[in-house]
């Protein structure tokens, strides 16, 4: 390939530029899970976007999959939905074969298997599951796209994760909070938040994220799991 003489002549590439089908897209949205003493919540906004377009103002992405387990896989929505439907399918077989509930711990390990199974063509999602552990305490597990996972007290995922997570560190795990009279020497003791406090925290996190992030907004759906089962609360977010 020859080009006209120019300062940039040496920079032209003689091999063709690869132009491939891109099997991924970013569906936007953000999710957030917090564990309490005897409950856990998993929340997500309901906006679905691609690029600068809002495709839908109500497309839920947090699911109650049964057995008191909540799952959300945020990122490329087609992958997220595929992951969750495979999980639900296998959960049915688990019930047929073992005739008992699937524990949250086992769900987490199984999701790792599903994600790592596609290690070389990954599900492009940040996955969070929430529920109760074997002792009835609230639990949240979070995953990277290829299956690394960890149990945590709280985790934000998706588009506005970097906006919400530092806020959570401060408000849930009391990071950088000290006893007033200790002049920054004694850390504030961590304690479980009540369900009411957690819901307020989630709502604040999402309305703030909506202000600053274009892929977040329209509606907030919070799924709450307690020993009595799962319930859903919906709040409007700004639609601009």
């Amino acid at each position: 390939m020859t080009t006209v003489n120019s300062d940039y002549q040496s920079e032209t590439n003689s091999t063709p530029i690869e132009h491939r089908f891109n099997p991924y897209s970013d569906s936007g949205g953000t999710i957030l899970g917090i564990a309490g003493e005897d409950f856990a919540v998993l929340a997500g906004d309901t906006r679905h976007t691609v690029g600068y377009s809002i495709n839908s103002r109500y497309e839920p992405k947090v699911f109650d999959v049964g057995d008191n387990i909540l799952i959300s896989a945020n990122g490329f929505s087609a992958d997220g939905e595929s992951l969750i439907s495979r999980f639900k399918n296998q959960l049915k077989w688990y019930h047929f074969n073992h005739n008992k509930k699937l524990s949250l711990k086992s769900s987490a390990r199984f999701i790792q298997q599903l994600l790592y199974g596609k290690r070389f063509f990954p599900y492009y999602v940040h996955t969070i599951i929430a529920g109760l552990d074997e002792e009835g305490k609230g639990a949240v597990y979070s995953f990277d796209p290829v299956g690394s996972y960890e149990r945590e007290q709280c985790r934000a995922g998706g588009a506005a994760a970097s906006l919400i997570m530092p806020f959570l560190d401060n408000q849930v795990n009391f990071k950088n909070q000290y006893e007033p009279d200790s002049h920054g020497t004694i850390r504030k003791q961590v304690k479980y938040l009540s369900l009411e406090e957690v819901i307020e925290l989630v709502r604040d996190a999402f309305s703030s994220a909506t202000e600053r992030h274009i892929h977040v907004g329209d509606g907030l759906e919070i799924l709450i799991v307690t020993k009595d089962g799962v319930r859903t609360e919906y709040f409007d977010l700004k639609k601009d």
Binding site: P23, Y24, S25, S27, H48, V50, S53, N55, S56, R57, Y58, E59, F76, S77, A78, E81, S82
Partner: peptide, 30 residues
């Protein structure tokens, strides 16, 4: 890509920029 979503008004391609704003004036939400 297998991406799916539902809404009271929908448009593909250019329609998402040109038609959706008009349709959303008629039906904004469910």
């Amino acid at each position: 890509l297998g991406v799916q979503y539902s809404a009271p008004t929908l448009a593909t391609g250019f329609g998402a920029y040109l038609a959706l704003p008009i349709l959303r004036k008629v039906v904004f939400e469910e």
